[in-house]
Simulated assay, not measured.
Amino acid sequence: MDIRIQALHFEATVQLKEFIHKKLEKLNRFADDIQGAEVILKVTKPEVSNNKEASIKLKVSGPDFYVEKIGNSFEEAIDLCIDVLKRKLEKHKEA
């Protein structure tokens, strides 16, 4: 799977990038036709809780899946996105 990570207005740590790769690779269990993913990370309104925004565009055969979530940390936001993508992939597989 081709994974591109873009961090807006900050530098993403290696740890965070590895976390994202690990989570996205697990989605391969739910669908065989995942071609790639684009992840965009940004901080909205600094100094406020729930200010880390993550959006994931998952490229599959057919229409792409797009999810955007906000959390207290990027890891939390990514986890929320992955949960939604799992459900979407399961529905896509059934269709």
Score class of each variant (00 low, 15 high):
residue 1 M to W: 02
residue 2 D to Q: 15
residue 2 D to Y: 12
residue 2 D to F: 13
residue 2 D to H: 15
residue 3 I to N: 05
residue 3 I to C: 04
residue 3 I to E: 04
residue 4 R to H: 11
residue 4 R to K: 15
residue 5 I to W: 06
residue 5 I to E: 04
residue 6 Q to F: 02
residue 7 A to R: 03
residue 8 L to H: 14
residue 9 H to P: 02
residue 9 H to E: 15
residue 9 H to S: 11
residue 12 A to S: 12
residue 12 A to T: 01
residue 12 A to W: 01
residue 13 T to M: 05
residue 13 T to E: 11
residue 13 T to P: 03
residue 14 V to R: 07
residue 14 V to L: 13
residue 16 L to M: 06
residue 16 L to H: 05
residue 16 L to A: 04
residue 18 E to A: 15
residue 19 F to Y: 15
residue 19 F to L: 12
residue 19 F to Q: 10
residue 20 I to M: 11
residue 21 H to I: 09
residue 21 H to Y: 12
residue 22 K to W: 08
residue 23 K to R: 15
residue 23 K to Q: 15
residue 23 K to A: 09
residue 24 L to Q: 11
residue 24 L to M: 07
residue 24 L to Y: 05
residue 25 E to N: 15
residue 27 L to A: 02
residue 27 L to Y: 03
residue 28 N to G: 07
residue 28 N to C: 00
residue 29 R to D: 01
residue 30 F to M: 01
residue 31 A to T: 00
residue 31 A to G: 02
residue 32 D to G: 07
residue 32 D to N: 11
residue 33 D to F: 01
residue 34 I to Y: 03
residue 35 Q to W: 10
residue 35 Q to E: 14
residue 35 Q to V: 09
residue 36 G to A: 13
residue 37 A to L: 06
residue 37 A to T: 07
residue 37 A to K: 06
residue 38 E to R: 14
residue 38 E to V: 11
residue 39 V to L: 09
residue 39 V to P: 01
residue 39 V to K: 08
residue 40 I to P: 00
residue 40 I to G: 02
residue 41 L to W: 07
residue 41 L to N: 00
residue 41 L to Q: 11
residue 41 L to S: 12
residue 44 T to C: 05
residue 45 K to H: 13
residue 46 P to R: 08
residue 47 E to A: 04
residue 47 E to S: 12
residue 47 E to F: 10
residue 49 S to C: 09
residue 50 N to C: 13
residue 51 N to C: 13
residue 51 N to E: 12
residue 52 K to N: 09
residue 52 K to G: 07
residue 53 E to P: 02
residue 53 E to L: 13
residue 54 A to W: 06
residue 55 S to G: 10
residue 55 S to P: 09
residue 56 I to P: 10
residue 56 I to Y: 07
residue 57 K to V: 14
residue 57 K to C: 09
residue 58 L to C: 03
residue 58 L to N: 05
residue 59 K to M: 15
residue 59 K to I: 13
residue 59 K to P: 01
residue 59 K to D: 12
residue 60 V to A: 01
residue 60 V to H: 03
residue 60 V to S: 04
residue 60 V to C: 05
residue 62 G to H: 05
residue 64 D to H: 07
residue 65 F to D: 04
residue 65 F to P: 00
residue 66 Y to P: 04
residue 67 V to A: 12
residue 67 V to S: 11
residue 68 E to Q: 15
residue 69 K to P: 08
residue 70 I to R: 06
residue 71 G to H: 10
residue 72 N to G: 13
residue 72 N to F: 12
residue 73 S to K: 02
residue 73 S to C: 07
residue 74 F to H: 07
residue 75 E to K: 14
residue 75 E to W: 12
residue 75 E to I: 09
residue 76 E to P: 06
residue 76 E to Y: 10
residue 77 A to M: 01
residue 77 A to R: 08
residue 77 A to F: 01
residue 78 I to V: 15
residue 79 D to P: 02
residue 79 D to W: 00
residue 80 L to E: 13
residue 80 L to D: 14
residue 80 L to A: 15
residue 80 L to G: 09
residue 81 C to E: 09
residue 81 C to Y: 03
residue 81 C to G: 09
residue 82 I to H: 04
residue 84 V to L: 07
residue 84 V to G: 02
residue 84 V to D: 15
residue 86 K to E: 10
residue 86 K to S: 00
residue 86 K to A: 03
residue 87 R to F: 04
residue 87 R to Y: 11
residue 88 K to Q: 13
residue 88 K to I: 01
residue 90 E to C: 00
residue 90 E to R: 03
residue 92 H to C: 03
residue 93 K to D: 00
residue 94 E to D: 05
residue 94 E to V: 00
residue 94 E to Y: 00
